[in-house]
C-alpha cells in the first residue's frame, strides 16, 4: 500500500492504518453496541491515530461526525 506521496508503507505502518480503519468502522456502524467506556476510549484512540494517518500522508477525513 502506498500513501498519497507514492511512498510504500511498511508493515508497522500498515498495522496502524488497519487499526484506525477498524475503529472508524466500528464507531460509525456499531456505535450502539458499545458501552460508554468502550465508545469513549475508542474515540480517544481514534483521535490519536488520526495523527498517525495525517503524518503518513493518507489524508484522513474529518471525524467530527463520530464525535472526535
Amino acid at each position: 500500500m502506498q500513501n498519497t506521496m507514492a511512498v510504500e508503507l511498511n508493515e508497522g505502518e500498515l498495522a496502524l492504518v488497519e487499526t484506525y480503519r477498524t475503529l472508524i468502522k466500528l464507531l460509525r456502524e456499531r456505535d450502539e453496541d458499545l458501552a460508554p467506556y468502550q465508545r469513549r476510549n475508542a474515540l480517544k484512540a481514534v483521535a490519536a491515530l488520526w495523527q498517525v494517518m495525517n503524518g503518513l500522508d493518507l489524508d484522513p477525513e474529518q471525524i467530527y461526525d463520530i464525535g472526535a
Partner: peptide, 11 residues
C-alpha cells in the same frame, strides 16, 4: 477544539 483537534494541538 474537538478530541481530534486537541490531539493535533499536542502533536
Amino acid at each position: 477544539d474537538s478530541m481530534k483537534d486537541w490531539e493535533w494541538i499536542a502533536e
